[in-house]
Amino acid sequence: MKILVGYKRVVDYNVRIQVKPDGSGVVTDGVKLSANPFDDIALEEALRLREKGVAEEVIVVGIGPADLTAHLRNGLAMGANRAIHVVTAEAVQPLTAARVFLKLIEKEQPGLVILGKQAIDDDANQTGQMLAALWDRPQATFAGKVEIADGKATVTREVDAGLEVIEAELPAVITTDLRLNEPRFIKLPDIMKAKSKPIDSIELASLNVEAHDHLKTTHYAAPAKRSKGVMVKDAAELVAALKQKGLL
């Protein structure tokens, strides 16, 4: 089977995000961009399934501007067979991203779609669930463990109450949590090899999706800052301070 993997480019998780003083956005000029950490995990899981013989082909998908190619090459260097680049100058919202994925699914007929549980820029945590609804297929979100056998996925999900195990008939959508695996590092020779792997570019407009986003972001603000506290010298002083605040 084929596995489709969401491979989104985001501001690197180490970057300290600054809100522009006029509230029109966050500073993204010149900041380091990387693969969404959850998508690296999604790709790693797909590669492992291919290595186990469960899948034959792993396809990374990026939706974004023309310069996304270099980022998709990283996914190819990590081991994906090929990439699909859905080209759009505008940032797309989750419902549109899900509709785009559905179009690609109709064409590629994957047995499994693996996305990140959330992208660390917008933190929406929606795309996989929306895609599963539109596709009318199972979803297994926040996956900490995935086993594929007999046409179904047995997925251990990290939920607030603990670990939940569900079974989903394939094809299905899985979204990754952080402990699913540790993504491999890209090696130099792989970067060379990736140069000859194909990247299909498709204009978003040509997919005929209703790419009309419904949410308008009107303002960006820095979060309220906590004021700096005080240092205490020992345990006794800490206990006294907490008692004074009525916390002990």
Partner: peptide
Amino acid sequence: IYAGNAIIT
């Protein structure tokens, strides 16, 4: 958004 580093309206 961004792990709480920005608050959007």
